[in-house]
Amino acid sequence: MQAFTCPFCGHRDETEFHFVVEAGKPRPEPSEEVSDEKWAAYLHMGKAPKGEAREIWLHITCGLYFLMTRDTVTRDILSSECLLEASE
């Protein structure tokens, strides 16, 4: 099975993770100014990249949502980054 890297916990089996969404889609706001097409694009559209993909994943064990870059063809993990800023 695959093994992904959580920025906090390190290398863990794929069963601990959940794919959330393709990264790089900021939520369009305020609602009143967003067209139907733009909202549909945010909700549903994506690139389904073949090759390098930037994705948001959830590590269920520790609850961290993080950014992972993978190759969708070879399934190699290229990088994992925490999205939260460090606390003081």
Partner: peptide, 19 residues
């Protein structure tokens, strides 16, 4: 729980609230 956590981290930067 995960939707709350998503809001907590993505919207509030993980600060000021715990779930």
């Amino acid at each position: 729980r995960w939707k709350l956590e998503d809001g907590r981290q993505d919207r509030l930067g993980g600060k000021g609230v715990y779930i």
